[in-house]
């Protein structure tokens, strides 16, 4: 059994792999990364019904990768996402990963090797954080955003580049009596254009796979597809692609 642990800004993910994905676990990233990793491991092992000693290698990735005591080695999330996405679909040439606190685009060759990548790790606009802030301002649960936005009738434009000012804009729309679903669609549109501006720095080739927690939001994907003018692929469990890649790398080393 091989294990990949991805400690992200918002969530921590674990994948156990033995010829196929045996189990995957997602928990919120706590303040104490060491404790988070421990808890993740315990839950993962329990879920898979195995013993810890059955695990032959562990690779840690994500921003907390250097704080995972049980890891044999660390690899960045760029390499892990590439590895994971290539395993899920070897036709993937572009990955768009929108995480809790950053977003990135990775270009792959046919063998799954990273050819190029770009990251936005400077600005919350274009990341999951933007959605979290807006969900709070609109009094909507994070996982309701997607379905709500698909009911949009009238497009609302969020023009601010900055999350904080975009929130003010959302509040003023609220006070103009705009509908929640229209505002949410506008929010998705705004994130999609920020992400696309970044993605365009690398050649966008099909197939395109979207990973990260934000890929769970159907409205967001809809907005992204419209912007990119191409179909995008969403894996079954987009949050754990990085952890899956880490597990595969553990197996290879």
């Amino acid at each position: 059994m091989w294990c990949g642990i991805d400690i992200g800004a918002a969530t921590a993910k674990l994948v156990l792999f033995e010829n196929m994905v045996v189990s995957s676990t997602v928990i919120p990233s706590g303040f104490d990364t060491v404790k988070t990793a421990e808890e993740l491991m315990e839950r993962g092992v329990e879920k898979a019904g195995i013993h810890r000693r059955d695990i032959r290698g562990i690779v840690a990735t994500g921003y907390g990768r250097n704080m995972v005591p049980m890891a044999d080695r660390t690899v960045t999330e760029i390499t892990c996402h590439a590895r994971g996405a290539h395993y899920l679909d070897s036709q993937v040439r572009t990955i768009i990963d929108i995480g809790g606190q950053d977003s990135k685009a990775i270009s792959l060759d046919a063998s799954g090797k990273v050819k190029d990548f770009v990251m936005n790790d400077r600005c919350a606009a274009g990341t999951g954080r933007f959605l979290e802030v807006m969900a709070r301002a609109l009094e909507v649960e994070l996982d309701e955003l997607g379905d709500l936005s698909l009911r949009c009738r009238e497009n609302v434009t969020i023009s601010s580049t900055c999350t904080v000012f975009a929130e003010s804009e959302v509040i003023s729309y609220k006070n103009q009596g705009k509908k929640k679903e229209d505002i949410i669609a506008g929010v998705h549109e705004a994130i999609a254009s920020r992400v696309l501006a970044m993605v365009h720095q690398i050649p966008i080739k099909e197939k395109i796979m979207v990973t990260g927690g934000v890929a769970l939001n159907a409205g967001m994907i809809h907005a992204l597809e419209r912007k990119v003018e191409k179909e995008v692929e969403i894996p079954e469990d987009p949050q754990v692609v990085g952890a899956l890649g880490a597990a595969l790398l553990a197996k290879e080393s």
Binding site: Y63, V75, T76, E77, I78, T79, D102, K113, V114, K115, F117, M119, D121, R122
Partner: peptide
């Protein structure tokens, strides 16, 4: 952030 970017680049 700098570290991650450079490490990812060097890994590739």
């Amino acid at each position: 952030q700098m570290r991650t970017r450079i490490e990812a680049f060097l890994e590739s």
